[in-house]
Design a protein around this nucleic acid. Sequence first.
RNA 1: GGCCCGGUGGUCAAGCGGCUAAGACACCGCCCUUUCACGGCGGUAACACGGGUUCGAUUCCCGUCCGGGUCACCA
Length: 560
Amino acid sequence: MDHNMLAEMLFPHIQDTPADIEARYPARKLAEGAKVTRFAPSPTGFVHFGGLFPSTVAERLPHQSGGVFYLRIEDTDAKREVEGAAEGLIKTLATYGIRFDEGAILDEEGKISDKGDYGPYKQSMRGPIYQTYAKQLVREGKAYPCFTTEEELDELQQVNKKEEIKNTDWQVEAEKRREEMLARRQFTMEEVKAHLDAGHPFVIRILAEGDAEKKVKFTDLVKGALEFPENDEDFVLLKSDGIPTYHFAHAVDDHLMGTTHVIRGEEWLPSLPKHVQLFSYLGFKLPKYMHIAQIMRLDENGNKKKLSKRDMGANMDDYTRMGYSPEAVCEYVMTLLNSNYEEWHAKNIDKPYTDFPFNIKKMSVSGCLFDFNKLDDVSKNILSRMTAEQVYEKLVAWATLFDPDFAKVLTADREKALTILSIGRGGKKPRKDLCTWADAKPYMGFFYDEYFEIVDPYADFDRETIALVMKKFLETYDPKDEMSAWFDKIKAIASELGFAADMKAYKQNPTAYRGNVADVSSFIRVAVTGKQNAPDLYTVMQILGEETTRARVTKAMMAL
RNA sequence: GGCCCGGUGGUCAAGCGGCUAAGACACCGCCCUUUCACGGCGGUAACACGGGUUCGAUUCCCGUCCGGGUCACCA
């Protein structure tokens, strides 16, 4: 077999040699220790939580080491490509602080264009490059054409049809298929020529010389020492449309683009032997690998499952819609990524998470469950530490998109909104009322007549007493009172009507009273805020002003 | 089924041969308190199982079990 001639027959249009290409992709000039990573999505949908996870790592590492973080679009499967998906991915990533130095990024007009010297960064644009290397492998007898059609393959592969897995004798089937495929390595020039002349499509397969009985040793930066059987599968390098499979594109691109660390989900672990073999065939230096544990969710049987699209909480845009601020999501991701993040954060409370020295060694080896409780806690803390202005701006931005009416109310009187949002804010122990922006309206809506309504019932007392409390309140209420004077008046009303003004006294002998001052307060609170629970009533009244306060109490009293 | 990865409380997790097995979230209780929120204090709750190795295993080795992933001209 003349491999040179075979290569020419298969790739007559490729005249470059690998050396020509190498010359166009010189090694990057970076400082010692600088890491080069990439995020390489296929444009088939939105970013989901499982994708944000590794991409956060991929962003941190180079940006912490003076390296380069680039975006490569793996659009090698035209069938699955979704219009506009790539643009969407980039935008979503950007809101979560994932920004690229290089690659297929958005220009001013919001269109994808290349930035950097190692492009093109869309794999569909790199056909000739892959073909050059494929041709070289054919020339060296390390790859060969395969004319077996997809239909024929389907028949051989019945084993892999998911539903039949349990009923099929895998061992036998797999062996049969393997022999069948191995037989197709044998061909003559004449046969190839006949196929080519007839215009039959072909794929290029690697000629795998691995021995599954032997093991390849390997060290993953997060998983540690690993051992796999050598690859003995003639996997496809180039599809019949001349576009590479993931495996081949990974080897060629990460080599040419100078990736130092390949960061990807652990579902790639099983194909590692293929990649090791490929890099070796191609004479490329193997990059360092980091296989990141997957985020899991609980299925209906209580078992963990890989979090995938469609799952609740998968689509990052859902978090935006739910009103989670990106900072909260990022911080939550950090707590999952590095177990010592929280400890660091406690000591560096005002520093952004980007100041945290991310450490590969601290990464978890096993997959974790997505925990909304934890996210909520992180989120509350972040929101509670923001200034009223920050909260206002972000809240308005969110409401403008998802609750325009509320946005109008908020912007109609900025000062009022700021005053409300300032309640219990600042200082060492701020209130934590807000977890998402969507919590704002239920929390503060009652301050606005547009949203005010009595939603909680009055305590279980006779209506006359409640009305009497309100009447007396109206008689004594003076907005100029200091807080203590104001509350003394409430206490006085309580005593007058047989309620305990002093909680300690009440607790010692509850039967001696009709109730206590807390009950009395709650009558007024419900009248003024519509709710049993609200921030400090005195403060609320100060914000509402005398007129509104009196109007609400009067109305409530009349309604009883 | 083969191959691979993993297995400390409900969740995230410290631990890296000797500890009463941290901490955070959640949950429960108490305190503070006119409600809520905040805060303080306390509590329930874990090394999957069985063999080794060792003076001593959560930690090292093997097996079992359980969970996950993967076995395409998808990535």
